[in-house]
Amino acid sequence: MKKKVALLTVVLSIAMIVFSGSMTAYAAHQCTKTVIIGDVNLDGSIDAIDLALLYNEVYYAVPFANPLQYIAADVNNDFSSTMYDYYLLRDYLLGEISSFPAGETYTVYYGDLDGDQSVTANDKSLLSNYLLGNINLTSRQYVAADVNGDGSVNAIDLAIITQYINGQIQHFPVCPQN
């Protein structure tokens, strides 16, 4: 029996070493952040202040302070904030529409750039390509990529995601442990 346990331990150890680069870590085990679509100022309600902030961002190019605001402002789910989002938000506040094409909420799964609710080598590849200037990230991907919570996406986030995929860390810095 001891030989079987020892053999199993060795086999599992080797498997962890061999497959560590392709391990999948499930983002559901990490913290998430849910954004109310239309709640541009992130105060928990949709009102005229949200409309004014969206107008200032679209018409006057006044950037939002928090990247989550871009997700909330994209009420038509086309991955950008435009006057069309403004008109939809206005119509919602006037009671002319009762919902947004983007739905009611969006949940950010930190580290999950491809939207499959798991953190894999594909997410790492997307972030690498962004950092190399080969691709742009949507606002949703940008927020998910900022795993250290410093408001920017850079090589530090890539290193943290790599550590998470390789099993070297169990949670992201943006996610306080309970």
Rank of each mutant, 00 (worst) to 15 (best):
T32A: 10
T138W: 13
I135W: 02
D112C: 14
P67G: 13
F172P: 03
K33G: 00
F172T: 01
Y59S: 14
A102Q: 04
D74R: 10
A28R: 01
F64T: 01
A144L: 05
N134I: 05
A28E: 09
Y70E: 10
S139F: 14
D116W: 07
I71S: 03
G167E: 00
Q69R: 14
F100D: 01
S99D: 09
T9N: 06
K4G: 00
C31I: 06
D123T: 07
S139I: 03
N66T: 03
L137Y: 07
K33D: 05
M16I: 09
L12G: 10
K3G: 00
T107Q: 13
G21Y: 11
R90C: 07
P173D: 08
I169H: 12
G38E: 01
Y106D: 04
L113G: 01
I165C: 14
S98P: 01
Y86R: 04
G167T: 06
N56A: 12
T138L: 08
G133D: 09
P173L: 04
V153D: 02
H171L: 12
R140H: 10
S125K: 08
V58A: 13
I165V: 14
Y164I: 04
T105Y: 11
S81T: 15
N56C: 05
V58M: 06
V10K: 06
V143I: 05
I36E: 00
D78E: 10
G38A: 09
C175R: 06
L94H: 07
E104S: 11
Q177R: 09
D91C: 03
I36G: 00
N178P: 15
Y110Q: 05
G133M: 08
Q168M: 12
N136H: 09
S13G: 15
A65T: 14
Y26N: 15
S99P: 00
V75N: 03
I37T: 11
K3A: 09
V143C: 07
V40I: 09
E96S: 06
H29I: 02
Q30Y: 00
V35Y: 11
L7G: 08
Y55C: 04
I71A: 04
G111T: 01
F172M: 06
N41A: 12
N77H: 13
Q117H: 12
Y130S: 02
L51Y: 04
L137P: 03
Y26I: 08
T24Y: 03
P101E: 06
N41S: 11
I49S: 11
L131S: 06
I46H: 09
Y92C: 03
I160P: 06
V40Y: 00
